[in-house]
Amino acid sequence: MTTVHVNGVALGIESFGADDAPLVLLVGGTTMLSWPDALCERLAAAGRRAVRYDLRDSGASTTTDPEAPAYTLRDLAADAAALAEALGGGPAHLAGIGVGGMVAQVAVLDHPAAFSALTLVGTRAVAPGPPDDDLPDHDGPTMRRLFARPQPDWTDREAVAEFAAVGAEIRGDDPAAARAVAARVWDRTPGTAPPVQLANQLGMVFARLDCAPRWRERLPEVQVPTLVVHGRRDRFFPVGNGEAIARAVPGARLLVLEDAATALPGAAVGEVAEAMLTLG
């Protein structure tokens, strides 16, 4: 792991594979650990350079004030383009997961020359908040259960990991995997203040981020090969969101993971990696 300075900020990155191999840039959602180690290793074994990175206010990237971010979604998109250029090797295959998928959509639209392919995992084409009328919103009972829980002691690593495990069970994800990832995220979080922990563990900075203007109507402008991956059992961004993106992007392939919810499960890594590799 290291940091790369672009756009006046430091972005924490981890690289898998040869430095001169074709680049697959993996946007964190919000930390790089949203992308499973096994997926990065699969891509590297297939001759790609997989680089996953932390968004601002998470992990090893510049953290200032997650409660009042002085940047916008467009700035995060510009970070992706600048990072792809800094890492070299020509246009990159860009992949975004969760809220990182929002960054990836805008990045490909605003900086088309920087990218050669696009993968979107478990995301949607509108900003955080109420969705468009034709898009399914977060599952109500699931969200009520998630937000009814008291927050953990953010200074207690094991309490935070347990909080993540229970949340994963509510969402339909693997609690053991979520526990392990949350502990690793905690280890990489620059402080135990609740706003910083919430940004790293739950991506809450996006609730305060300026995501205007809308980009959904621009999706037909995407000119690169595109893969949309979505869990059939996703209760946070229900699968109709992924289906809508795939309909809007010309020639996009939709891969629905029948047994997946919000997180990318280990059992699906091989299938997703192979689908990504077909894009280039």
Rank of each mutant, 00 (worst) to 15 (best):
R49I: 05
V166G: 06
P36K: 02
A84Q: 04
P175N: 03
L146P: 04
D234S: 13
A244C: 08
L76P: 04
H230M: 13
D19N: 06
D137I: 03
W186T: 13
A168L: 04
V224C: 11
R179P: 05
V24F: 00
W186V: 15
A81R: 01
D79L: 10
P130H: 10
V205I: 13
D54W: 08
R49L: 06
P22G: 11
A260S: 14
A86M: 13
T192Y: 12
T63L: 12
R42L: 13
R42Y: 03
M143E: 10
V24G: 02
C40M: 10
R214F: 02
L146F: 10
A10M: 14
L94T: 00
R124P: 14
V256M: 08
I13G: 00
G12S: 08
R216M: 14
A21V: 06
S15A: 06
H111M: 09
G59L: 04
T72Q: 05
L73T: 07
P238D: 12
V196L: 14
V269D: 14
A183T: 07
G203T: 11
A117I: 03
R218T: 09
A95T: 04
T123D: 10
C40Y: 00
L39Q: 12
A21K: 01
A38Q: 10
H93T: 06
A168R: 05
T142H: 08
A114K: 00
T155W: 00
P36N: 08
L83I: 12
V239Q: 14
V103D: 12
V228K: 02
L23Q: 13
G88L: 04
V228E: 10
R208E: 11
V9A: 15
